[in-house]
Design a protein around this nucleic acid. Sequence first.
DNA 1: CTGAAAGCGCTTACAG
DNA 2: CTGAAAGCGCTTACAG
Lengths: 343, 343
Amino acid sequence: MERITIRDIARISGVSKSTVSLVINNSPKVDPETRRRVLRVISKHNYVPSVAASALAKGKSPFIGMIVPGLTWRMVAPMNYGVASVVETTPYEIILYTSTNDHDYASVIDRMLTSGLSAGVLVIAQDQPMDPLLDLHAQGVPVVLINTLGSSVDLPSVEADSYEGARTAIRHLLDLGHRRIASLQGPMKYRCCQDRQRGYEDALAEAGVTADPAFTVPSDFDPVLARERTRELLDRADRPTAVFAHNDSTAYAVMEAADDRGLRIPDDLSLVGFDDIPSSAHVRPALTTVAQPFVEMGRHAARMLLAAIPSTERTAGEDPPAPIRIGLETTLVVRASTGPAPG
Amino acid sequence: MERITIRDIARISGVSKSTVSLVINNSPKVDPETRRRVLRVISKHNYVPSVAASALAKGKSPFIGMIVPGLTWRMVAPMNYGVASVVETTPYEIILYTSTNDHDYASVIDRMLTSGLSAGVLVIAQDQPMDPLLDLHAQGVPVVLINTLGSSVDLPSVEADSYEGARTAIRHLLDLGHRRIASLQGPMKYRCCQDRQRGYEDALAEAGVTADPAFTVPSDFDPVLARERTRELLDRADRPTAVFAHNDSTAYAVMEAADDRGLRIPDDLSLVGFDDIPSSAHVRPALTTVAQPFVEMGRHAARMLLAAIPSTERTAGEDPPAPIRIGLETTLVVRASTGPAPG
DNA sequence: CTGAAAGCGCTTACAG
DNA sequence: CTGAAAGCGCTTACAG
C-alpha cells in the first residue's frame, strides 16, 4: 500500500495542494465549506502529512529534546510523566537523549546538535557541565533545566523550593520537641543543598535554638560516606536526637547507621529526608520527608519551554520568557521516622 | 548564521552534490582521495546533513519509537539505559512515547503512527492491549516487546526467565530448611506470573515437598490487597515459614503484614521477592530477591529491533528475525530477608 | 478564497 | 569514479 500524499488528497477533494496544506495548517483563509470537504477526505483516507516533508519545508522540527541522566535518578519517571502530559497536547514529540555514563555528557549534546532536530531542549539536571547548554542557548535554542543542581546558571529552570522545604522540615522537628538537630549535608556546591542548609539554619534561629556547628556534618549524596559520617555523629556523647538528611537516599544511610549503633527510629532518633522518592513510603520505618513536586516540575518546565519556542502561533512581537528560576512549593510528608524528642 | 547545506559543501570542495551525498552515506564508489577532501571540508565547516531532508529523500526515518508506561515502573530507568547504550552507537534517535494514564494507550500508538516517524518500535510492556501493536507489526513496522506481561503474543519479546528465577528462589529457601513455603501470586493472567508459579511448584516437587494448596495465595500486584492476603495467611495456625512474593512491591507488602502480626523477618518468616528494583537494597531488612537483568534486557531488545529494521546495509535476501521470545537469565540476590527455617 | 510555481535539502537512478 | 536532473512531500509567497 502506497503512502497517500497531499497530492492524492488534493486530487480527490478537487482542490489544489496549496489549499489542502492551508487546511492542514488551520489557515483561516480557507472557505469553511471547502475546509469541511477536504477534512472529510483526509479523515476518510486516513491521511497523515509527512513530518519529514513538512519539517523540511517549514524549516523547523516538531521535536523537543529531553536529556535525562542515565540511571539512578528516581525522580525522572514522575518528571517525565509531567513533561509528557503537556507535550502530548501539542504537535511536538520528545526525542530522548540519555546520557549514559560511558559516553560523556558533552557528546549527547553534540549528538543533539548534530541531528539539528530539537526546537527546544529540556534537561533533567545531573552534575553535568553547563557550558554546552549555554552555547546551545546562545545559538537560539530554548533550553529549560529541571531540577538544577549547579549553583547559578543563566538558564531558565524549574525546581523545588529547597529553602522553604527545609525550613518546614526543621520546624516539624522543633514542634516535636527536638533541639539537638543535625544536618547531614549533600554536596554543598549544589545550590539546592545550600538552600536546604540555609533553611535548616534559619528555622533553628527563628526558634531561638543555637545550632551546634558539630551538628552540621559535611557529606555528599554517596550512601557509603553518609553512613560513615552518621556513625561518627551518633558516636558523640552529645549526639543529636534528630537528623535532617539533604535527600532520601542519604536518609536511608542514616537508617543503616542508626541500626549499626542500636538506635531505634523514631524512638531514639528522628529522621527526615528530602525528595520523597517512591521507595521512601516503603522503607521501614516509612520516611518522613519533604516531597518535591516532580510531576508538576515536569509540567511547568514543558510549558516554559513551549512558550520559549518561537511559534507561528505566537505574535512576533512577544518576547521569549526571561531566564527565570522557578521554585515550586514542596510538601512535608509526615510518616513514621519522626517522633517526639526522647527524654 | 545561515545553515550550511550540501550545496555549500559541494561548491567548496569542488565536487557535485551527488558526490558529497555519496561520501556522507559511505558509498564505496567514491575515490578515496575525493572522499578525504570532502570529509575535510565537512568537518572544517561543521556541516551536518539535515535529518528531515534525508528522511524525506530516503523515504524512511532515523527514529525508533519507545513506548513506556507513565509512572510507577521502577524498571524503566535501567531498561532505558540499556536501550540507549545500543541506540547511541547507531544513527537512530529515540522518540519517547509515554502512555500517561489519562490518555488511553491506543492513542499513543495512534500518535506514533500518525507521525509516521518510527522505523521500529520498542515497547516496555504494561498491561496494555496488544492489538494495536499487532496491527503495527502487520503493517511492516518491526516491534519488540520488553518485559512482556500478556500471555502469548506473536511478537518478538525479551524478558527475564521467570521460571528459572522462581525455581532458584525456592531452592534457596529449601536449602535454608524451609518446607512450608507460600507463593504470593501476581495476576495470573500474566505469563511471567504463570512461570513463577510453575517454578515454585516444580522446585518444591523436585525436593519431594508436597505443596499445601492453601499456601498458594491468589493476589495481584496491588500492595493493599497483597498485605491483606498475607495477613490472612499469617493468621493460619499452620502458617508458612517463608513466602515467595511474585514481585518486590508485593514483598514490601508482606513485610508490612508481618509487622502487623508481630513477626520478625527473617527470624520468624523468610521472604524472597522478584525483580530487584532499586529500593529493595534499602528496605529493612534488605530484600532477598530474584534480580531481573533490566539493563541487559534493554540492550537485547534494542539489538533485536535494529536487526529487524530493513536497512540498506543488510543484504536484501536476509530474512527478518522470527518473532521469538527471549528469556534472559536472572540472578538470585541474597540479602537479609531470608534465613534458616525457625525451630 | 484558491491555484501554479518555486523551493526546502537531501538521494538516487542514469549517463558518461 | 563523477555530475546533471528528477524527485521525496510538503509550504509559502505571489497572482488572480
